[in-house]
Computed example of a mutant assay.
Amino acid sequence: MSVAEFRALHDGPAPLILVNAWDAGSAKLMASLGAKAIATTSAAVAWAHGWPDGDTMPWELLLTSLRAIVGAVDVPVSADVEGGFSDDPAAVADLVAAVVDTGAVGINIEDGSSPPDLLCAKIASIRSRCGDALFVNARTDVYLRGLAAPDARLTETQRRAKLYTAAGADGLFVPGVTDEYDIATLAAGTALPLNVLARPGLPGALALSALGVRRLSAGSGVAEAAWAAVRAKATAFLSDGDSDALCEGGGNYSTINALMTARA
């Protein structure tokens, strides 16, 4: 799938909804349910490899996951590259070039707790290296990490949005924002499609569309729910070995196996 096709998904009548995946199997499931694109979640990809989230996993494992995901689905794939696994803009551009080589057409890259000028430098370096070969979704963590006082978060996010736009970003991702006024103000104040993250209290997709949101991400939410379900089942089985309780809600072997048999 091309970058142009992925960009066009941000221009539809409703927000692009991304139920983030973490491996080829979860990506195939999301695609089979009608997902128009697949985005990875850095947390769940890291967990699947036994690493914590937060630029800690060897990035070669990210590339391995991306190759498998791209090869498993026939919809556009966007990669969460966290902060780029480095503070060196040139090294980040090297990583992103390798991401493009997997067939992914987009990335999320975040400022985290670092100065916004650093993310600007990373985006500029990525653009210099990769040109328009991918959709760069610039994530700012002002709301998510509380990087400004509550009454200053909107203004600070707007300031960063202008910086990231000038650096060459294609999209603006503001995880943590849920207030309708703030969302509408952010959407109206930037030329970039606004992406928000599923959080308690966030309006539904139709309401978000009316506020100007163009992209809604599940983030690690589905993966967290899956881990919780596995933990509950495994804990119960380890405690008493009750096969009936373990198998309750199961019976999906044939369905899952058939899904994995079909190739992109």
Rank of each mutant, 00 (worst) to 15 (best):
I107E: 13
I107S: 09
I107N: 10
N108I: 14
N108A: 02
N108Q: 11
I109L: 13
I109N: 09
I109K: 05
I109G: 04
I109D: 01
E110H: 06
E110G: 02
E110A: 03
D111V: 08
D111I: 10
D111P: 04
D111H: 01
D111L: 09
G112P: 09
G112T: 06
G112D: 01
G112C: 05
S113Y: 04
S113E: 09
S113V: 15
S114M: 10
S114Y: 09
S114K: 12
P115K: 11
P115W: 11
P115A: 13
P115L: 07
P115R: 10
P115T: 09
P116S: 11
P116N: 12
D117C: 12
D117V: 13
D117A: 15
L118I: 03
L118Y: 08
L119V: 07
L119R: 06
C120Y: 12
C120G: 13
C120V: 09
C120P: 12
C120A: 15
C120N: 02
C120W: 13
C120R: 14
A121F: 00
A121M: 09
A121C: 04
A121H: 05
A121N: 11
K122F: 00
I123V: 15
I123C: 14
I123F: 14
A124H: 08
A124G: 13
S125K: 10
S125F: 04
S125Y: 01
S125W: 13
S125E: 10
S125D: 13
I126A: 11
I126H: 09
I126P: 08
I126K: 08
I126N: 11
I126R: 00
R127K: 15
R127Y: 12
R127A: 11
S128P: 11
S128G: 09
S128D: 10
S128F: 06
S128Y: 05
R129S: 15
R129N: 09
R129F: 15
R129G: 13
R129C: 14
R129K: 15
C130M: 07
C130I: 01
C130T: 09
C130E: 04
C130G: 02
C130F: 03
G131N: 01
G131K: 07
G131C: 03
G131I: 04
G131A: 06
G131T: 06
D132V: 02
D132M: 00
D132Y: 00
D132F: 01
D132H: 03
D132L: 02
D132G: 02
A133H: 07
A133V: 07
A133S: 12
A133E: 02
A133L: 04
L134G: 05
L134V: 03
L134E: 05
L134P: 04
F135I: 12
V136T: 12
V136A: 03
V136Y: 05
V136G: 10
V136H: 00
V136K: 07
N137S: 08
N137T: 08
N137C: 06
N137L: 12
N137V: 14
A138L: 14
R139I: 00
R139G: 01
R139K: 00
R139F: 01
R139T: 02
T140P: 01
D141M: 06
D141G: 07
D141H: 04
D141T: 06
D141E: 03
D141W: 08
V142I: 15
V142P: 06
V142S: 13
